[in-house]
């Protein structure tokens, strides 16, 4: 390792999640026993967590925290090939992630991840049909959703209704264009927030710029 790239300082921001000063850069990383999953760098006991590839990383880098606990049970909707799931699995190392994805191709890589880790249950299912996996998924502490669908908010709420414990947390990554490709993003987001707050408590929300254009995260809680 070159001298100027040496880790200068690292700050723990969540269980197994660190902000690391490395050379001139500030990097987000998870402490991980495992190898690289999507081309991210490994250094020492860390795996770099790339904000342009993962909206959760973008949110954390922007300074917002959801206090994800190591023993949490998680329902993850829109797992794709497991980029974000791999880091979340580092965090909830004593918990479990039910990872739902409906497209077979990226899912094959998610299966590889589930084979490597012990805390991922891969489910090739459609998140808009939660009754198809309600015999498998239990009540969870946390629901995370990242699917670019027109009816993504309804999907999120349906899954919250079926699977979130009382007091549980939810995080949805919303892409304006996928809901309405012609409307102003700000209008789309307002409608989304209004719809969500009818069913759950909206704890916080913010944009994911500059990492993801026209995206926001919304943190909710079931009270």
């Amino acid at each position: 390792m070159k001298a100027k790239e040496r880790v200068k300082e690292s700050k723990k921001i969540l269980h197994n999640v660190y902000l690391i000063e490395k050379g001139e850069k500030r990097i987000l990383a998870t402490k991980s026993k495992y190898g690289s999953h999507y081309g991210e760098k490994r250094f020492g006991e860390f795996r770099e967590w790339i904000p342009t590839r993962s909206k959760l990383a973008a949110m954390l880098l922007k300074g917002y925290r959801v206090d994800i606990k190591p023993n949490w049970k998680v329902l993850y909707l829109g797992a794709a090939s497991g980029t974000t799931v791999s880091h979340l699995a580092d965090i909830v190392e004593k918990g479990i992630i039910y990872a739902v994805e409906y497209s077979a191709k990226p899912f094959t890589k998610l299966i590889e991840l589930a084979e490597e880790r012990r805390n991922i249950i891969p489910l090739l299912e459609d998140a808009s049909k939660p009754e198809r996996y309600s015999g498998i998924v239990e009540k969870v502490d946390f629901i995370y959703q990242d699917i670019a669908q027109r009816n993504q908010v309804e999907i999120f709420l349906d899954n919250i209704r079926m699977f979130l414990k009382e007091g549980g947390e939810g995080l949805i990554m919303v892409k304006a264009r996928s809901i309405d490709s012609t409307a102003e993003p700000s209008e789309v987001f307002e409608a989304v927030l209004r719809r969500l707050s009818k069913q759950v408590k909206v704890v916080a929300h913010d944009s994911l710029e500059p990492y993801h254009r026209d995206h926001i995260f919304v943190h909710v809680r079931l009270e």
Partner: peptide, 14 residues
């Protein structure tokens, strides 16, 4: 057991 089964099912389905 759940994980093993899920992986097996996932392979078949994909």
């Amino acid at each position: 057991a759940l994980r093993k089964t899920a992986i097996e099912v996932a392979r078949l389905k994909t």
